[in-house]
Design a binder for these strands. Structure first.
Lengths: 205, 205
DNA sequence: GTCTATACATCGATAGAC
DNA sequence: GTCTATCGATGTATAGAC
């Protein structure tokens, strides 16, 4: 990308510029999350966001083509946060423990930020649809979750659907009725044990 | 209410007026749902809604004090729809069958109307909070579900939380990934059986 | 209750100078 | 890249006549 604007052996000016630009975009997205937590996801105003980063509202268009493009960047960022939050888990070799800890992390991740959960897992912004690049980040998370399931012996499509429903149910109730708490989070182990028992007992095809 | 404006033995003119008014409110709410399915829940414009019911935009204020009051009426109406959709179930005496059919109805209800599901079960409209009167309708549904659970021998708070999470998970996945379909709907029986087995096996306190 | 007319406050987005 | 200025659209709500 930036290589197009740079001479082969020239000074790294363009790279530096690209870095500064990426850093500023990161700051804008960070402040957009803060604003979203204060005013709601749909309550983000470009003027308020500009104030937070020391710009005038039209100057934001130097970084984002539209407000939906901002949401798209937030979507990708949120999914990267989710991957980071669920990737440093030690593999104990016990699939029940591993899967439980994973589910607990996902539930806590959602319960800790209602608006982030809304953008990542609900279709609440009119007209917003993730770009292929941003959606790819979401797919990466799903693939990691799929690998964990496979390690636990869960491979049938119906079983995977069941697992996604169980996890979605815990996160949804946690976000909707006890944000920041643990009312459903603490049932993660019970749900995973129940799920794996069910998968083992259900008939092979 | 309308009795205040009516003489004791007078003609039923005021009642008729109140009936016509209530009927018109019902039409407005009905069209608001149609508009919401077309443009999204947050995409309802009072001008468009007025067009659909043959009024000018300011005339809507003769029926609703604000746009949020319209959402409030829709919230109550949607919960009444949900109660109606889950109330004509025959009691077979088999709690597994009864509970399965109930869960299946709830999942189908959500999957059949994404925007209705959003308004009833997600906090997506900035500033909207159901009035006590509208919330009472939602509570009535929850009480009916609670009675069904009790009939199946489910009484512990943690078990009820687990049930709400399972149902919420099925509806969420159905709405989000297969609206109008049956990909998660068809797992209702499996989930209920799994749930009741878990409840019976978990230790008594 | 319904209308016309309009206030009033936004918003997101663009044009063009520096 | 950032600014000022402003457009064009939209959106809720009110005033006052009929």
């Amino acid at each position: 990308m930036s290589a197009l604007n740079q001479t082969v052996a020239g000074p790294p000016g363009t790279d530096r510029r690209a870095l500064r630009r990426a850093a500023k975009i990161a700051v804008i997205v960070h402040e957009a999350w803060a604003l979203s937590r204060a005013e709601g996801l749909a309550g983000i105003l470009l003027r308020d966001l500009a104030d937070r980063v020391g710009l005038r509202q039209p100057s934001l268009y130097a970084y984002f083509d539209s407000k939906l493009a901002l949401y798209d960047a937030m979507f990708a960022d949120g999914n990267r946060q989710l991957i980071a939050y669920t990737s440093d888990l030690p593999s104990t070799g016990d699939p029940v423990r591993d899967l439980t800890e994973f589910v607990a992390r996902v539930v806590r991740f959602s319960g800790d930020d209602v608006e982030r959960h809304q953008l990542l897992f609900q279709r609440t912004i009119p007209g917003f649809e993730p770009s292929p690049e941003s959606y790819a980040v979401a797919v990466e998370f799903l693939e990691r979750a799929g690998a964990l399931l496979q390690a636990a012996g869960v491979t049938r499509a119906a079983d995977i659907d069941l697992f996604t429903a169980l996890t979605a149910g815990l996160t949804h109730q946690q976000v909707a009725n006890d944000p920041g708490g643990d009312r459903w989070l603490k049932q993660a182990g019970r749900v995973v044990a129940m799920f794996l028992t069910e998968v083992q007992q259900s008939p092979r095809e």
